[in-house]
Every structure is written in structure tokens, then in C-alpha cells.
Amino acid sequence: MSENLEIEFKTLLTATEFSHAVSYFHLKETDFFTQNNYYFDSADFQLREKRFGLRVRTLANNAEITLKIPAADGLLEINDSLSVETAQQIVATQTLLDHGNVYGKLKSLGIDKDNLHLIGSLTTKRAEKKLPQGLLALDESWYNQEHDFELELEVADAIVGRKEFLFLLDTLNIKETPSPNKIQRMMLSSNENIKKL
């Protein structure tokens, strides 16, 4: 089974802080790539209640479906690679596959994949850079009517990684702004839009 433990620390950035970080790490426009995230849940939000996240992600030449489940440190990620065409079909028909690692895990958790449908999407322009501390990602994201910036550091160890993340922010002269994850931000902005109707 394709499973891995994701331990990452993140902070929201202002546009100025984002530009500073891009400049500090000598990133160019060609270092950025676009990924489209499509999030799924049931009408009664079974996944959100369990703090799970399910997304289909498409990039220029490949795609994947990922189920994220809370773990003692970080998140357990269950993945299946997809062709871009298969991913687009899943999104268009809102019908998940009936095979693969994600399907197997959902089934073992008692979640019927036929009850899951598209609840929203988010587009991210991302640059990644390998650092001694871990994998740095600088993200610019658009969802609903929102547009934000974020810095993530994916690490191997939660305790050491947290210290190195704070040191990195200090080096960049950035104050930590705790950030809900992308699916939570997308859902919150969607809920706010619903409340305004």
C-alpha cells in the first residue's frame, strides 16, 4: 500500500513576505508549477467529522488521489497515482474509483465511496526547494473568492522539525501565522459565502 507519514509545519504569509521568501531562496517564475486540488466529502461531512481529507490533485502531466488521516505526529497519507484523464473523469462525474489503496482504506473505515461528492476546489502555484531541514514549499493559492500565500516545511521529525521551522521563520523575519490546512480554508470560505446568501 502506498502510505507515508507527512509531518509539516506551515504559516500563512503576506504578499510581501511571500515575495521576500521567493527572493531569499532565489526562486524564479520557472520554478513554480500549478496544481489543482479537488476535495470530496459526503453531504453530512463524514470525512470532516473524522478530520480526514480526500482530494484529487492534477498537475500538468500526472495526477493522484490522496486520503489524509490524522496520526500521532502529522498525517498518514494514502495515495494512488492517476492519469490526468482519469482524475478529470473522477472530478467531472464525481464518481470515485472502486479499486486502489484509497478505495480499500475508505472501505475498511466503513465509508461508502458512492456517498462522496465534490465539495470544492483550490488551485495552487507552488515552488519547492530541498533544504537541510526538509522540503520547503512556497504556495500561492486561489479558492472561492480568496487568494492567499503560505510557507510549508515538510520534515522527518516533529520535535526537531518544529525548532527548525521556527528558526527558518526567524531567519526570514516572518512571524508565524498559524494556518488551517487548504481544505479547511476552502471549506471555511465556502461556509462564509453560504452564510452571506
Results as ranks from 00 to 15, higher is better:
Leu136Val: 02
Ala15Asp: 12
Asn62Met: 15
Leu59Gln: 13
Thr34Phe: 01
Ala15Ile: 09
Leu109Glu: 13
Ile78Ala: 07
Val22Met: 08
Ser108Met: 12
Glu29Gly: 08
Asp80Ala: 01
Leu54His: 01
Gly104Thr: 11
Asn37Pro: 07
Ala92Thr: 11
Asp112Pro: 04
Thr11Cys: 10
Glu3Asn: 12
Phe9Glu: 09
Leu27Asp: 08
Ile69Gln: 15
Tyr103Pro: 02
Ser2Cys: 12
His117Met: 09
Phe33Ala: 06
Ile111His: 04
Val102Asp: 02
Lys50Leu: 06
Thr95Val: 13
Gln46Asp: 15
Arg51Trp: 00
Gly100Thr: 00
Thr123Gly: 00
Thr123Met: 03
Ala43Asp: 10
Ile78Arg: 01
Gln46Glu: 14
Ser83Asn: 10
Asp112Lys: 09
Ile90Leu: 03
Gln133His: 02
Lys113Gln: 13
Asp41Gln: 09
Asn115Tyr: 07
Asn37Phe: 06
Val84Thr: 12
Glu128Phe: 11
Thr95Trp: 08
Val84Leu: 10
Leu122Ile: 10
Asn37Ala: 12
Ile119Phe: 10
Leu131Val: 00
Gly120Ser: 06
Arg55Cys: 07
Ser108Thr: 11
Gln88Ile: 11
Ala60Met: 11
Gly74Asn: 04
Ala127Pro: 05
Asp112Trp: 04
Ala72Glu: 13
Leu13Asn: 01
Ser83Ile: 06
Ala127Trp: 07
Thr16Asn: 10
Ala92Phe: 05
Thr34Gln: 05
Gln88Thr: 13
Lys28Trp: 06
Glu128Thr: 14
Thr123Ala: 03
Leu136Ile: 01
Leu12Cys: 10
Ser81Pro: 06
Gln35Arg: 15
Thr11Trp: 03
Tyr24Met: 12
Thr86Gln: 05
Lys125Cys: 06
His99Ile: 03
His99Thr: 05
Phe33Asp: 07
Asn36Pro: 00
Leu122Asn: 04
Asn115Ala: 12
Ala15Phe: 11
Glu6Trp: 05
Asn61Arg: 15
Lys105Ala: 12
Leu5Val: 11
Phe25Cys: 03
